[in-house]
Amino acid sequence: MLGNMFEGFAWDLVWQFRATFLLGFLHTLETSVLAILLGLSLGLTFGLMSTCGKKWLVGIARVYVEFIQNTPLLLQVCFLYYALSFSGHGIGILATGIVSIGVYHGAYMAEVFRAGIGSIPKGQFESAESQGFGYFGVMRYVILPQCTKIILPPMANQIVNLIKNTSVLYIIGGSDLISLTYSFVTGVNTGGAYGPAYLICGLLFFGMCYPLSTLAGIWERNLKKRDQLSGALKE
């Protein structure tokens, strides 16, 4: 059985249709990059809102985070796509993917930002305020730069999860890597090459995600090393 799946013809078929896989790869990359940008913007915005101390802003941020985190991404994708389509305001598969996945991970990223900002001692905020920095100056020059090394690992996690979650677009007929791979292996002319097709698909995902987590790891280690160095130079 397994032998069948990896027969030579299957590999030939995948090679013949390599453009399909490349297209899926590029669509997934495109969706991911734009969804990451949207997610980070929403995450930063709502993360700042939940730490700003103004009750109504904190409330809005809580509603967003809880609502998105406690409903399935698949449902959100379907809702956005079908509900909008049937009401005549369809925004297309690509935009649906970017918005729904960006909004979904934005909620998790908001929590990452909230935790990062919350871990900075109160004295840092006061120090910057006493120098005349307004809210955004305090955040930009003093608080957020200190959050980087705390935020980095969970944020890299979110980004990798986001890329993998582009696979939910299959449900609305996306042209992302998972959807195209699935169409390929079930297609009339191309069907049957399960083993190689899924393997290639997996390798392409790995090629996107692994460098990201590795880079984030290196960046984090460098930041920590700098901390140790700066502390170790004490005379």
Partner: peptide
């Protein structure tokens, strides 16, 4: 007009 010095220094560690 104003600047401040704190008990816990509050220098920017980064």
């Amino acid at each position: 007009y104003m600047s401040m010095v704190f008990q816990s220094f509050n220098l920017y560690p980064h």
